[in-house]
Design a protein around this nucleic acid. Structure first.
Lengths: 155, 155
DNA sequence: AAAGATTGAAGACTCAATCTTC
DNA sequence: GAAGATTGAGTCTTCAATCTTT
């Protein structure tokens, strides 16, 4: 096919493998979390990122950036999380345009309950198959690509 | 948060970066293809993979494996591609259970038209930021993870 | 005008159920 | 019973339109 004809052979191989990871890894993590904790991978990220903030509270726009998602997507997800009582929206006192999400006690408990299984999955699917040196290589390479992706319009 | 507390610091860094890639890369490629060629990234893969087969024809189950997708997802996509006249379903003469997808002439043209822009995007978003050695590292690491992911139930 | 956020509609994906053939 | 495939329902995501505040 033409796709990869314009990449070198090495780039082709790398691209095929990366594409497989990008397609299958989210699906695998999704299944684990959905099955064991009835939440999506993205919901897990949102809860986890929020839990790291002071007062377990963040602006939605900040959260969207950290979660690598659009504000629209995040807003829909926050609505669902709010329905389940895991987060609460509140106005930002510093800027009347902004909204903050606050992790509730129930949300914290849900996160703590989900974490072990999720971390175990990440370890099993990713780090168990890597050699010690690979971890640094992966971090370096993924960081570079992620940085470039952050320069992209919309995100 | 607890997510990454049970990974080493290095693993944490690698995981954050990988997660960002996994979330943003598909979105970026998706936007490029949708904007320039009115097709999804996954549809592009399906067309490209089909185009590589003898007679530009493949079994759906084979195609699903190559495309890292479930048969259900693929079937839905083939239906859409068929509506646009880019592929045709046909029975497999060797196995009455099976269905084959055949790339049409229009499908081939659509693929050829989309390829340059897509390859350019892959190059810009991935390979332009990598050093020569990185490509081999990426291929090695992504291959290992992809292999593990293929052992997962469902896919 | 830009930034922060929300909403609804349309399209895509997942899951489970189902069907046919091996 | 397993493999190959399809379908429909429910859910999620994207995109564009909209609103308010800066």
């Amino acid at each position: 096919m033409d796709d990869v004809r314009w990449l070198t052979d090495d780039e082709q191989r790398a691209w095929r493998a990366l594409a497989a990871v990008v397609l299958r890894l989210p699906a695998a993590l999704e299944r684990q979390l959905q099955r064991d904790s009835q939440m999506s991978h993205f919901e897990y990220w949102v809860l986890a990122l929020t839990s790291e903030e002071p007062d377990r509270t963040v602006r939605l726009s900040t959260l969207a950036t950290h979660a690598n998602a659009s504000l629209s997507r995040l807003s829909h997800v926050i609505t669902r999380l709010e329905r389940r009582g895991w987060v609460k929206r509140e106005p930002d006192p510093d800027d009347a345009r902004a909204t903050r999400a606050r992790l509730t006690h129930a949300g914290w408990r849900a996160l703590v309950a989900a974490a072990p299984g999720h971390v175990e999955a990440v370890r099993r699917l990713v780090f168990d198959v890597l050699q010690p040196d690979d971890v640094a290589d992966l971090a370096r390479i993924a960081d570079r690509i992620a940085e470039r992706l952050r320069e992209e319009p919309s995100g």
